[in-house]
Design a protein around this nucleic acid. Structure first.
Lengths: 279, 279
DNA sequence: ATTATAGTGAAGCGTATAATTCATTTCAAG
DNA sequence: CTTGAAATGAATTATACGCTTCACTATAAT
């Protein structure tokens, strides 16, 4: 799906004057400049006057520079993976899912893989892994706990109603994985603080650098939500968790620490395993 | 090399006022918006006034909004324009996430949207919505329960240890949403059977037409997993759930049944809401 | 309850930038 | 050359946006 402004430019290009062609080339070569610079500066960059820049915009069929800039901004806003499926009718459902796809894609591109490696390493080395997440994040915590428990067998889901003194009984070589998303629950902060005081490694999975728990974190996994709806964090977070789980399973298998029965967890298309009593 | 504006924000964050903190979070979440939107619009996005946005900029040590925007533009020029796609190294993490993307995409293309519409309609009409999911599926059940409860306020998560006789006390105009993934828990089947006998509508979200609960289902939402790893069901299922939630919220809003405060749930980039106490 | 203080937003002002107008330059045809 | 039409940019006008001021509101202390 080539953006509107490109097709327009190509169409009118032959009929443009010399000065306008300069501007046209600049637009195709470096559209980003048109977003962040004023028209006059575009002019000086391309070696023409501000007037010429505006003329060019009108030649494209826009009202003026402002309108072109506006469409460019819109264009830049949507993430650069417009997968065009020709004859498909968008419904509220499909457009919503596409929104999830876009968000995962953009997170993928900015993923801090070295931090994830450290997290996996820490998980594997830990005698015990305690997972915490309140409210919405409880779904994430449960997913990580359940599946990690299946891989390592030493995961624990923190439940405040029963695990009051849990941290006192936690072996020193353990870690805590906390999900902390906007807006931040007080209980999460208290728990993490206590863990940190006891010398337990703290891994935070969050959507914000300024989440109050970050100050106690040894490792931070950042999920970038941008201005996405609060529901969107679901799929992308689970996907990132999965990448951690899969790599953990992978490494454990390589080191031969673990029965082969976990194998199918790792790669797609492998045999399913009968011992896994599901849901 | 973390950008200047991030370090500054993190540094002053604790000393900021409530309104300024909103802006601060928006900046860290979505710096791009600060480049392409005027201050007033940043204000309306974050739910504060233009003045507050400018105050925040000054609190960071900038002259005002203009100067912050200028530094952001510089920052984006550095990052954004040279996208060296060649030097992107696939890691186990990124390839894994790409696998999730592929699965969601393929589900998207085969999505039964009319069935989803029926499901949404049923949810909206129901006096009560009981969500059930054992083992791995508990994560899905919780996600649906929590968020639906925020939209409609009448969602209930079935917990066997406390909800023994729940179905007897359930009003007739209700529905049950069950997550049933391979391999199928006996408890799920028993529960669904009972619900069906009591005349309660049964909605099943499953990965198989031959799941034992399908025979009791009034509506079936099929998640196609193919031979994908058992972890992969996570993101795609959450994404489908989201599409249901978003559409439900959408319709409820349209009909005006519900306070406007739920609005931000529906579309990306809408106002955030203070009443949502998170995680 | 009362008052002081901090927090916040609406309205007006000033500047930066876009758009228009018009004068100058360029260039091709006779 | 000369001339007229097209091309271009400088100057002018209009507008949008950031910034300041000030009045109002929430919060905390007494």
């Amino acid at each position: 799906m080539t953006p509107e402004y490109i097709t327009r430019t190509e169409k009118v290009f032959p009929s443009l004057t010399k000065g306008m062609k300069k501007v046209a080339e600049a637009l195709l070569h470096d559209p980003y400049s048109f977003v962040i610079h004023p028209a006059k500066q575009i002019g000086s960059i391309t070696g023409v006057s501000e007037t010429m820049v505006i003329r060019f915009c009108k030649a494209l069929g826009y009202d003026g520079f402002s309108q072109l800039q506006e469409t460019l901004k819109q264009e830049m806003l949507k993430f650069d993976s417009p997968i065009p499926l020709d004859d498909y009718v968008p419904t509220p459902f499909t457009t919503n899912i596409r929104g999830d796809l876009d968000l995962i894609e953009s997170n993928l591109q900015q993923l801090n893989t070295s931090e994830l490696s450290s997290v996996v390493e820490r998980i594997i080395k830990s005698e015990r892994v305690i997972v915490v997440g309140y409210y919405q994040s409880n779904a994430f915590a449960y997913w990580l706990f359940f599946n990690l428990n299946y891989i390592t067998g030493n995961a624990h889901l923190y439940r405040p109603e029963t695990d009051a003194r849990l941290l006192d009984l936690t072996p020193p070589n353990s870690c805590v994985i906390v999900f902390s998303f906007y807006r931040y629950a007080m209980d999460t902060i208290r728990f993490v603080k206590e863990a940190k005081n006891k010398g337990i490694t703290v891994i935070v999975i969050t959507d914000s650098h300024v989440s109050p728990v970050v100050q106690y974190a040894d490792h931070i996994v950042l999920i970038r939500l941008g201005r996405a709806s609060l529901l969107r964090k679901g799929p992308v977070t689970l996907s990132v968790i999965n990448s951690i789980l899969a790599e953990a399973a992978n490494q454990i298998e390589e080191k031969g620490v673990t029965p082969a029965s976990y194998k199918y967890f790792i790669k797609d298309g492998e045999e399913k395993n009968d011992h896994y009593d599901f849901d």
